[in-house]
Nucleic acid binder design. Structure first.
Lengths: 218, 218
DNA sequence: ACATCATTGACTTGATAAGTCAATAGGGTT
DNA sequence: AACCCTATTGACTTATCAAGTCAATGATGT
């Protein structure tokens, strides 16, 4: 009898699974929940993840608990593998942005829709305990951006350009560019040319950053 | 007996309605179909539009026909009031982009989610006759961009910046910026001060375009 | 008072989707 | 082989949901 199991321990069974299966389930669930809690169906999740329905409920009990777990998991992951690793003390803000892009790409490699998932949770009307964490996490995220902006050397910018706007442009461009590349890289890419694609990917990204430095700096 | 009524004539009853009611129904339906054909419910549409369920089916027969009608309507509207009005012969590409934004604003004023709706249709797996029109329309849209790029004076750009990359940056930035604004404007739109918001929206956009001209041109 | 058309919303009916559970598969131990 | 124990299955139940209907009501003109 395990009557004293805490909520968190409920997921130990799941977390003890082999990494690959775990990730498959998490990614399938995140993808499906993108449409919002209500519209997502557990049938679609198990189909996508390649497991039986019974197993999903064996691990998570209810759809609601699964959603709750997912939010916590995504917050922890993005915090631990992205936000916490950002170095906010760099002088050249383009170095910071470059570093953030690399980190983001690393996280997205494992969880392709994790950032979109968190955004969708933020909009979704469904309430659940994990949403409190999400709110604190969002604060932390904007704080990071503020820190980077405050600590960087804004005197490097041309005097006739608002650095805040310039930074926005850079961030929008990089995410817009990443979206177009997402088609090429993300799905089931296996083989030697991944690394090759990867290099050209970084190369092109660097070219864009060069333009930004050339145009926005003195 | 009206056995010889053509498909299109089925909608004459609807198109004879007072403009305001028509628009309310169209906007409600577009908004709901954003989530995809399957996920949208006619109950939500009639609730949002403030009409009875019977009436919706009186005008459109089935959910499928409504969707089909909507796509055609949206394509025709965006084509007639946006694509066809773009002047592709301007020298300064930033003038073209500015003009496109103005046109887009005018269309969005009447149909707040029409562009998002068309994008969602493009992704949606649902097949229907109107999708053929949509495909041709998409081609036309990208053709417009190509035309603008080919006809503009690329010699205005700094020599050390690839105009193609610069244009990409501008487009990514504008859509990234529109996304952040959509978040602020959209949740429960159709408010009275949409027009007012839109003016400050354009004002800010002008500032960004100024930056682009300053930084990317000689 | 009557005819005609617009509009309603409770109702029907089939589909859908969360959650269950008895049955099976697999893998280790004796 | 016989056993145990856990992982896993997927057909099934049941309540809710959502497309489409229709008899009734309202509105308008004659």
């Amino acid at each position: 009898m395990y009557i004293n199991e805490s909520e968190k321990d409920d997921y130990q069974k799941f977390l003890a699974l082999e990494q690959d299966k775990q990730t498959r389930i998490i990614n399938a669930a995140m993808k499906e929940f993108l449409a919002g809690y209500k519209h997502a169906t557990t049938d679609a999740i198990v189909r996508e993840a390649g497991i039986s329905k019974g197993l999903l409920f064996h691990y998570f009990g209810t759809k609601e608990k699964l959603y709750d777990f997912l939010i916590d998991y995504a917050v922890d992951t993005v915090k631990g593998e992205y936000l916490d690793l950002i170095n906010v003390w760099q002088k050249d803000i383009f170095d910071s942005i470059w570093q953030m892009s690399l980190l983001k790409r690393d996280v997205s490699q494992k969880f392709p829709v994790i950032f979109e998932f968190l955004a969708s949770v933020y909009i979704d009307s469904k309430d659940c305990p994990a949403k409190v964490h999400l709110a604190r996490f969002k604060e932390m995220q904007t704080q990071r951006f503020t820190d980077i902006y405050n600590h960087c050397d804004r005197s490097l910018f041309r005097d006739d350009v608002d650095p805040r706007k310039a930074v926005n442009i850079v961030q929008w461009s990089l995410s817009g560019w990443a979206d177009t590349k997402a088609f090429v890289l993300s799905p089931r890419d296996v083989g030697a040319d991944v690394a090759e694609n990867y290099e050209s990917y970084l190369e092109e990204m660097k070219e864009y950053l060069d333009i930004f430095r050339k145009c926005f700096y003195k």
